[in-house]
Design a binder for these strands. Structure first.
Lengths: 120, 120
DNA sequence: CCACTAAATCGTATATTTACGATTAACGAT
DNA sequence: ATCGTTAATCGTAAATATACGATTTAGTGG
């Protein structure tokens, strides 16, 4: 049997549909990436614990400049971790529980592979 | 212009130890960041489902060059998600279940923090 | 109107990530 | 020792991420 031996750039068939990346992998990666910074974890935790929080209070609790915190808030908002609503001159942020739930779901589904064929 | 060096409204004491970042936040962020790429999620899932896997098989299943996959494997290894052992001319990778467990723990602790400020 | 505050955005500098081809190192077999 | 295979590493280019000061936008109150 000849070794087609993958030419430098030539790949093999590529089994199933890992070609585009499984949607669930992409989704979990997206949420994980957004959470992948200590400041953002702190923000999410803060919001989950308080139900709501004015932006300024978040800034006060982080050792970061206002612009930087705002940037982190944007990342979390874009990923669906939090949402903000205008409240007079301020912005009131709160966590989106369904995102936390989905994140946990996906993470558990990932870890559940570990049990495959071992315990029922 | 303002001459006082205090930040706009004058920072408050900075609550507990958000100064350096709570250790658990840093840990969760570290694990999440390492998982924050679809290819790496795919790798972890693959390994959790197979118990072990030769590096080449992983490369074959991803639409990425060998060097790139190797880089992703390094990220996961450095973060403790996986480990590799030399097996002749190949390297056999497997997932570290305790890391998956810790990740879930931290994520659940985050989501469950409906009350209270902090533990540690 | 003007001043003040709150938060987003701009501009920018630096650092990290991601991807790849090329090379190297390590191993088994010839 | 040489060959072929496997996987890490090197070197590099492009894209993102991180952080900050400065500015802009928006709302409140005088």
């Amino acid at each position: 049997m000849k070794s087609i031996t993958l030419t430098p750039a030539g790949r093999r068939p590529l089994p199933r549909s890992r070609r585009t990346g499984a949607p669930l992998d992409v989704e979990l990666a997206r949420l994980a990436k957004a959470l992948g910074h200590p400041a953002r974890v702190a923000i999410v935790r803060l919001l989950l614990g308080k139900k709501e929080c004015v932006c300024g209070d978040i800034v006060d609790r982080l050792p970061l400049a206002q612009a930087t915190v705002s940037q982190h808030l944007k990342v979390l908002k874009d990923a669906g971790w939090i949402q903000g609503s205008i409240d007079g001159p301020r912005v009131c942020y709160c966590a989106r529980p369904e995102t936390g739930r989905k994140f946990l779901e996906l993470a558990q589904a990932l870890a559940a592979r570990e049990e495959e064929g071992e315990t029922s």
